[in-house]
């Protein structure tokens, strides 16, 4: 019994190490002064960060990724929140079909969706000349994650709350605005966070749909890694991790604590 517990503990611990190790390694490499990470490390240096921030292509890519993620999350909000409301409160006979359609971008292989979109854009003549296709691609893969978050938030509030508001004289819009929305706000913000991260980290869609001459941060890292080894990418990766982490902390400040009020 004791032995079993110990064994389980050891197994679990090593899996946690396994999970964190490559991520930690990237962060460490970004601060390493040498080109190759050695053990023991050669020394601390910020020169890869200097490289990163001094590189116009990296800066452009970071800006595009950020804007792309914000826009994708915002557009996905407008699409996914009503969809979740419809699914949880009103959908009738076609309920499951509706859910499957909404989750389709998640259920289908992302790379296949990217290929399908690429061909489609060329067929209808948008191609990849403008960034529109890229933005649309990001919106579509963000929807399912957003939808799932808002759906579960809606399931957690009783429909009788909305009915109570209606019985007190609120129209359906007022009862949504005054009762439903404040209660699902954490879910909506979480959904937006998810959408932001999904878009910010995406490669498959960007790989095929990025416009000529533009690139996103993960794409830039991907391209660097394919052709050469350069610790500047480690700095870029660490910055990317920091940005996601920043978004998470921001959201936690926004709703994590506020949600404790009731």
């Amino acid at each position: 019994m004791k032995g079993g517990k110990l064994l389980l503990g050891a197994a679990v611990t090593s899996v946690y190490v396994f999970l964190m190790l490559p991520i930690a390694i990237v962060v460490i490499a970004s601060f390493n002064s040498g080109k190759y990470l050695k053990f023991p490390p050669e020394g601390f240096s910020l020169r890869w960060y200097a490289n990163f921030f001094g590189s116009q292509p990296f800066m452009d890519a970071t800006l595009l990724s950020f804007v792309l993620a914000v826009v994708a999350a915002a557009v996905a909000t407008v699409i996914a929140v009503p969809a979740a409301l419809y699914y949880v409160r009103h959908a009738g006979r076609w309920r499951e079909t509706f859910r499957m359609l909404t989750l389709a971008p998640l259920l289908l292989p992302e790379i296949l969706t990217a290929i399908a979109l690429l061909f489609f854009y060329y067929q209808i003549g948008i191609g990849t000349k403008s960034a529109l296709g890229l933005y649309l691609g990001h919106v579509v893969i963000c929807i399912p994650f957003f939808f799932l978050q808002v759906t579960s938030a809606l399931y957690n509030i009783s429909p009788s709350l909305e009915e109570a508001a209606r019985s007190l004289g609120a129209t359906s819009w007022t009862s949504f605005r005054r009762v439903t929305l404040p209660l699902i706000k954490p879910g909506v913000i979480n959904g937006a966070l998810f959408a932001f991260i999904i878009s910010f980290d995406n490669v498959s869609i960007s790989l095929l749909l990025k416009g000529v001459g533009t690139t996103t941060l993960p794409m830039q890292v991907f391209d660097y890694l394919r052709w050469d080894f350069d610790p500047t990418t480690a700095a870029a990766s660490t910055v990317s991790i920091a940005m996601t982490l920043g978004a998470v902390i921001l959201v936690d400040r926004l709703v994590g604590l506020r949600a404790m009020r009731y």
């Binding site: 009783s158 009788s160 709350l161 009915e163 109570a164 508001a165 019985s167 009762v179 404040p182 209660l183 009020r261 009731y262």
Partner: peptide, 11 residues
């Protein structure tokens, strides 16, 4: 209307 679960607005 009074609901079985009261349906008081929690926020």
């Amino acid at each position: 209307m009074v609901f079985q679960n009261y349906a008081l607005f929690p926020h």
